[in-house]
Every structure is written in C-alpha cells, then in structure tokens.
Amino acid sequence: MISKTIKGNSTETIIKEIDEATSDGFKPTLAIVFLSIKQDREAVSKVLDDKGIQIFGATTAGEFIDGDIEEGSIVIMLLDINHEYFKLLFLETGEQSTFENAKQLGSEGKNTFKNPAFIIVSGWLSKDGENIVEGITEGSGGEVTIFGGMAGDDMFLTGPIAFTHGKSSAKGLIGLIIDEDKIEINGIATCGWKPVGTTKTITKSEGNVVYTIDDKPALDMIMKYLGVEYDFDTGKEIVTQIGAYYPLQMERENVAPVMRTAMLANREDRSLICAGNVPQGSKIKFSLPPDFDAIETVIEECKQLKDEYQQEADALIMFSCISRHLSFGILMSEEISQVQKVWNAPMVGFFTYGEFGKSKTGKHEFHNNTCCIVALKEK
C-alpha cells in the first residue's frame, strides 16, 4: 500500500498537488481529508470524487502533515488501498441516537469483514463519545480496534463537521472500516500528563457537566486549588488555562487514567462543562502543566508499540487534542515530528475536540488531552 501526503491553502492548490502526486501512475482509492472549517470542503470533495477517490473527512482545530503544523489549511493523505479491503459508512444523529448509529456501524463492520477495525471521526457529539465506542463494540459483537477523533472548528465551538462526498453534518459519524486480515492496524492513546495532589471525588455531575467536587462548586474548587483566574468577560480563559493546562484525570483500577478537559464554565452555578462524560462518584486528580517529559512519554510509548506490535508502517494517522496544542505551544511540533520519525512513514493528522483509542493498559474508549496515533501496514 502506497500513501502520499499533500497540503494546500486553497482548492486550486490541492488540485495541482493531486495532479503532481498521481503523475507517476499512482492511483489512490481513498483520501483522508482534514481541513479548516474556513475551507470549501464541498469543492475539495468534488475534486476527489471526480477522480474516483473516496473521502474520509473532518474539519479541524489545526492540521498537521508529517512534521509540519498548519492552520486554516487542507491536508490530505492519498492511499491506493484495495477497494475490497475497506468500506466507508456515514451516519447522522437524528431519528436514531448516536449510540444506535454507532451500533449500526459496528454491525456493518462485522457483516463486511471477519475482523473489522474502525477509524472514526464524529462531528459535534462530545456528550456521546462513550456512546460511540460502546455502540461500535456492541454492534460488532465484542472488543474491536477503534481509533479516531472528534472534528474541530478552529475553536469557534459552533459546529465541527464530519464529511464524505455528498454528506456532511455537525452530528455526523463517519467510519472507515478496514479488514484487519488484509491491513495490519495498531495504535495507542497516550498523553504523558502527570497527576498532582490528593484524590478527589465528583460528588455531583450529569453527563459531561460537573457541578461539585468534594461537595464544593467545581469551578471554585479548581480555581482555588490551582490558583488560576477565570475571565468571565472574554469567556475564553477556561479553555486556555484550565482545559489546556489542568485537565482532570479520572482514576480507574489497574488501568491508565482517562483524561477529561474542561471546555467551558457556567458562571451561575459554577459548574464545568467537559469534553466527555464524568460520572458522579468518579475519583479524580488534577494534572500538572505539561513539560518536555510529557512528550518523551508519548514518544517512548510509540516506540514500544513499534517494537512490540508493528515495526513498519505504510501510513500514519494522528488525532491530537487541541488542548495539547494550547498547552505545549511550540513544543507541539516536536512531539508530532518525533512520533512521525518512529516509523518514518507519511503522516496526516489534526487537532481534535476528543479522541478515540486504546491506552497501553486500558481498553478502547473516549479521551481528552490525548494523542492517538494509528499505524497501518498492508500484509
């Protein structure tokens, strides 16, 4: 399987890049398309569809290709994967719930391949992250490979979109179902964040809204404990300070903690709105702001994945939380480039509003503040 990555700041540039990439006889069948919400995704989709290339797409909160970070652009990975080895399915939450859609996706995968793997992108469905994983797992009849991310919208927080040719929606779920008997897929969800302080309890929550921690208003608790300020006039400090630098770590027995990002705050009831469910009764710790050690942890876990499971890759896809970009700053490019060098294969990715994947000691689940890397290799 051959993969080639291209990028551009306009549809016209992408047309030229596709023509150049295919000038040597390369005939891609699938395009992984990650682009800014400001770009004309319908025009880009038409260009690819006219060439007979299927589309797995998402809007982003920033894009990257190989070791380079882009903003407001279009990045594409072109793959010449055999049509018989994959299937695309696009579903939209509406008459059916997100869980029912995800269950349908899982069932379709099992009916199509004996051993299906799922690479997924969802739209603005942050309350349904766990439902997506549970639905796919139930539909496919057991634990299966699931990696992916929630689309972004350049931090406008109004409606990130999942799309394919002729279909797009902020409530969309697109699944790239791959035959694991033909394509080797391995991945890992890793973050490197270090916990700090004593274990605390979520004493009141509903879905992704946390009302109290140790019976104290959640916002007041985290502001006092971490010494951060919340600017209610701009409404943005909760994202850049608490969400990016101080994610919550939900503790579990014998497995890695799962991260939860505080995206917004309610000034009236002092609650935190997280990018994923935080069940009442959960045990949590706060996190230290990241340093270079966090990057080294991510790189080391990728190296372990390579050594133990997949020494070579034809293509790499990365889903990295936008909060990592906000907190790491210029160090983010170091993490991306170093991960790409682990396999030295073409890589495409984007900054997400949530990630799907399996940690070193956990199961496939929904994450925040996490880097999910997927390696693919034709058998």
Rank of each mutant, 00 (worst) to 15 (best):
C274H: 15
I322K: 01
P257A: 02
E108V: 14
T98P: 14
L288K: 11
Q304M: 13
K283L: 11
Q39M: 04
G142H: 14
A21F: 03
F147Y: 12
E70S: 02
A313F: 12
F328I: 05
S140Q: 08
F156S: 13
S327G: 02
Y245R: 12
S107A: 15
P195M: 15
A117T: 00
Q338T: 09
I55Q: 01
D307K: 13
A313R: 04
L176Q: 04
K4P: 02
N254R: 07
V339G: 03
M150Q: 13
F351C: 10
I238L: 06
M332K: 01
G175R: 08
T5D: 06
G329E: 00
E378N: 12
H165W: 13
K194A: 09
I18K: 05
L176A: 04
K103A: 06
E63R: 04
V47Q: 12
G166P: 01
I222A: 06
M263H: 13
G72K: 09
G227Q: 08
N101Y: 11
H364P: 11
G129M: 07
V339I: 12
E335I: 05
R270C: 06
S10M: 07
H83A: 13
T145W: 08
V348R: 03
K103H: 10
Q249F: 11
W343N: 10
K110D: 11
V209A: 09
F356M: 12
A151P: 01
G123I: 00
L157N: 13
D179L: 00
E63C: 07
N368D: 08
G281W: 04
D214V: 10
A218I: 09
I76N: 01
S97I: 02
A294R: 02
T158D: 10
